[in-house]
Structure formats: structure tokens, C-alpha cells
Amino acid sequence: MVAILYNIMDVWDTHLLTLRTFEHLYMFSIALFIATIIGISLGIFIYSRPGLANPVLNILNIVETIPDIALLVLLLPFFGLGAGPTIVASILYSILPIARNTYTGLKDVDHEYIYIAEGIGLSPKEILYRVRIPMSLPLIAGGVRIALVFTMGVVTLGGLIAAGGLGTALQTGIYLYEIDTILVAGIWTGILAVILDGFAGIAEKKITARFGSW
């Protein structure tokens, strides 16, 4: 037992896993933050221009079907190696679930509420900001949560193109066939993902309790 713990500490120190974890979370946070802003904005945009909704969502769907390794490679000519293309790839993957959920949420708010909002004298803009967006928050949160999982995956893959993060330790372990390293880095990455998703789940529940319709 103590030996195992010692092994873990050894791997952790050798591969700078504390630093790698910070790098990992750094890329993850930036990617998810930007993806959320772009995704929600795009969702609102295509909601307000319904003609664009299908083309835009189709394009995002195509991006989504590109395998992640291929996407990283495709981005190399533009962004070089490292964290840049990894973050961009994460964002590209994450926009779809957020934008699609935002769009669906805005569009599918129970018509009864829109109707009474009009009836008591809200302008279309006020209906969007006071009724549609707040009432879509549970669905938007669901989209962000899906994006979170995508982002975790892509950021880990970033180790392939020298992005840093936990993926780097994992890659090293694979190249050198160090089972200990693979296990420690792999399990830790998995635990991290589960913890983050757990927090996201709690946040989503809170938002649903506050803004969901009953």
C-alpha cells in the first residue's frame, strides 16, 4: 500500500503533474469560457435570424464529425503546435452543443409565457431578455455541461501536439511504455473530469430549480 503510494508520488513528481494539472485546467477554462460566450451568442443570433439556424447548425455538425485528432492536425498550419490549436479545437467542438441548446431553449419556451408577455406589454427585445433567455438557462446549462466533457477530452489530446497539460504526461507514458505513468496520469485525468462534471451537474440542477418551468 505504502509502496503504491510511493510510486504514485514518484510519478507525480517526475512528470510535474501539479504543473500539468494547472496547465490542463488553464486550457480547459479558457476554452470552455470562450466556447460558452460564442455558443450562447451564436444561439441567440440564429434564433433571431431563423433562416440561418439550419445552415449554421449543419456547419457545426460537420465540424463535430471531424475526428478530434484530424481536427488538431487541420489546425496546425494556422496555429502551429501547442496550447493555441488545442484551445481552438476545444472551442470548435464545444460551440455546437451550447449553440444548439441555446437555440432550442429560446425557440421552445412555452408559448403561453410568450403570449402573456406580449399581452402585458413587453416588446420583442424585452421578451427575449426577460423571458426567453432566463427560461432557457436550464437547457443552456445542459449544453455547457456536454461541452465541458468534450473540452476535457480535446485538452487531454492536446498532449499530442505539445500543448502541455495532463495529456503530455499521458503521451510520455505511452511512448516510454511506463505503465505507472499511464495509470496515474490517466486515472487522475479521469477523476478530474468526473469532479468537474459533478460540479457542472450541481450547477445545472440549481439553475433548473431556479429557472425551470414547473
Binding site: 402573456i116 408577455a117 399581452g119 432566463p134 429557472f211
Partner: peptide, 19 residues
């Protein structure tokens, strides 16, 4: 919009905003 703000409106399903 201005007209409706000068007219009270009540419907069967009430439509209070849940949030």
C-alpha cells in the same frame, strides 16, 4: 406595446413567469 401597457390582461392559464 404602449397600448398593452395601458390595458390590463388576465388569461385562464395565468402565465406567471416561473423564474
Amino acid at each position: 406595446v404602449k397600448l398593452r401597457r395601458n390595458i390590463g390582461y388576465v388569461i385562464q392559464n395565468i402565465g406567471l413567469f416561473p423564474h
